[in-house]
Amino acid sequence: MIEVAFWLLAVAFVSRLTFVIRFGSSTAFLAAMGIGLIGLFSTGVLVPEPILDGLLGGHNVLHLLRNLAVTYAVWLIRDGVVHAFGGEADRSRFIYRRSFLLLVTAAIVIPFLFQHFVPTTERFVPENVDQPAVLIYATVYMAALGFLAASVVKTCLAPQSSRAVRVSARGVAVGMAFMAVACIDEIVYMQLQALDAGPAGLRAVLYGAFSPLLYGGVLIVSLSLALPLLIRVVRTFDLVNRLTLLVLEVSPATINDSTKVQSSLQRMRAAWLHADPSSAVYEHIIRESDRRVTEEHRSLPALTARALAAAEDRFDRSFDMTVKEKEIL
């Protein structure tokens, strides 16, 4: 799960970075992705955690830095979401200011410094939660992360006029909700573990549920943040009309005819590289409309007919939207 989240976030980060450099896209979530990537890297997905922590002294300092990185990444996502969807009243509240982030950071770091330091272990919290300092450190971290994630959920559920933005925001809300539940799960587990209370089976379930919830949330958030980029790629390169043109230019009958395979490949290449695929698809729609008048019994392959119908519906909706915009203006 962690490896999938890491590589997906890496792809999303590189994609957004490319669009920022090439098209001047918003950098609101770029830093959050980069810091989140560093946090996931520190879990040992590429370099074993003991080696990384050994470079920092071998006393689980990497655990602290990873938690701070995740906290800051979620903070940056919340900051971007609030600036995009929130009102002026939200942005002026103390919990959205940098001073609040500094307070949270201090509340996490200070208890960590008062622990009895132990050698590097991948199960740092479960093995040392009996130390009051470690229990306070981990509890404050989980509470802060859960609070930040829950506040993102609240903002993302605000009404949005754009369907793409609405879907992306709802996806972020779902992912953050998973992370908030993971934080609650971990806090309950740590208290039971520290007090040696509750059935061992319950503690095992709580411990096992944490990673799927947390990193599942990271996966969903990464996908949701990448959605606007994907939509922009589709629109920038007009991929829908290019794919439609491929279907319209090359019928199954032509492809199955071995004498025309080379011609079909040339037509496919020309269709995919067409300078204006939208106009070419529209010309197909006009020609087919004319043929319906002159050739009543002409039938098309099922895939071609579906592609034409979908394209015609898409152009009609686009025309209706243009007319409405003109009426408003």
Rank of each mutant, 00 (worst) to 15 (best):
P277R: 01
E249I: 05
S26G: 11
T155P: 05
V174C: 03
S222F: 04
R170F: 12
V281L: 08
G57M: 01
S161Q: 12
V221Y: 04
S264H: 03
L8R: 02
A200L: 13
C183A: 15
G57K: 03
A305D: 13
L103I: 07
T18E: 08
E249T: 10
V250W: 03
C156D: 07
D313T: 13
T71H: 08
G44C: 02
E249G: 11
V153W: 01
V172P: 02
L9S: 11
A310F: 13
Q131D: 10
L113I: 07
Y141N: 11
A164E: 11
L223Q: 07
F94G: 09
N67A: 01
E325P: 07
F178R: 01
K154Q: 13
A144K: 05
P111Y: 05
G54K: 00
F210R: 13
D196H: 11
V153C: 03
R163A: 14
A173V: 05
G80V: 02
A311V: 09
Y96A: 09
F13K: 03
F23Y: 15
L30W: 04
R269N: 10
E3D: 13
A5S: 10
V250E: 05
D257G: 05
E325M: 12
R66C: 06
A226L: 13
V81W: 00
L68E: 02
A164Y: 09
L248I: 05
V218A: 08
I2R: 10
V104D: 03
P126W: 03
Q160I: 02
L8G: 15
A200Q: 11
